[in-house]
């Protein structure tokens, strides 16, 4: 069965949003790092990674069905 995630990219990373980002197809047991490499997001920009509302790191494995958010921190005031 094909596994998908709901992938949301914010701020400067929004331009990397793939088609069907709300049902983005992942490889079995893909990590966040692999997903980002697949869509061309520079991993050093992905400082804030959230899976189902919890902060995670690049190497967390995805099983499908997760809501994934990638946010580059902003620093302006």
């Amino acid at each position: 069965m094909t596994e998908t995630i709901d992938l949301r990219l914010f701020a400067t990373l929004q331009k990397f949003t793939p088609e069907n980002s709300d049902a983005f197809v992942i490889m079995p047991n893909a990590t966040i790092r692999e997903v980002l490499e697949q869509i061309g997001v520079p991993v050093e920009k992905a400082k804030l990674i959230f899976v189902n509302g919890l902060k995670k790191d690049l190497d967390v494995k995805l099983g499908g069905g997760e809501r994934v958010g990638i946010f580059p921190p902003v620093g302006g005031g």
């Binding site: 914010f10 701020a11 400067t12 946010f71 921190p73 902003v74 620093g75 302006g76 005031g77």
Partner: peptide, 9 residues
């Protein structure tokens, strides 16, 4: 708090 463009946290 921090902002940039249309985003903030």
């Amino acid at each position: 708090a921090a902002v940039g463009g249309q985003s903030g946290h």
